[in-house]
């Protein structure tokens, strides 16, 4: 069992990392989130959404908290 796990982690290092949520900052764009997480909206309600989710970082989405591509229109940069 232990050996199998070791082999899996060697062949696919991402496999073992999958237990953690992963936040990826996309240059000039949203925040991509994968892995085990739970999102609570600004009203305190849990938002049901399948991964990956893309959270707006530019402040201009009309679909907040999610990205709607507005960053491209406004030329958002870090």
């Amino acid at each position: 069992m232990e050996l199998t796990e070791k082999l899996i982690s060697q062949t696919n290092p991402l496999k073992m990392e999958n237990e953690k949520a992963l936040f990826q900052v996309i240059t000039g764009g949203p925040l991509k989130v994968t892995g085990p997480f739970q999102i609570t909206g600004s009203d305190g309600e849990i938002i049901e959404k399948e991964e990956p989710v893309y959270l707006c970082r530019c402040g201009k989405s009309s679909n907040k908290p999610f990205c709607n591509g507005a960053h491209k229109r406004i030329g958002f940069s870090e």
Binding site: K20, A21, L22, V25, G35, S42, E78
Partner: peptide, 24 residues
Amino acid sequence: PTSIRIMKDGPIFVEGNFKIIGAE
């Protein structure tokens, strides 16, 4: 599971066991 909370008129507050990959 990592908790992601959207703060009203504010940031995304994250708490738990997670990893962050930057823009570069």
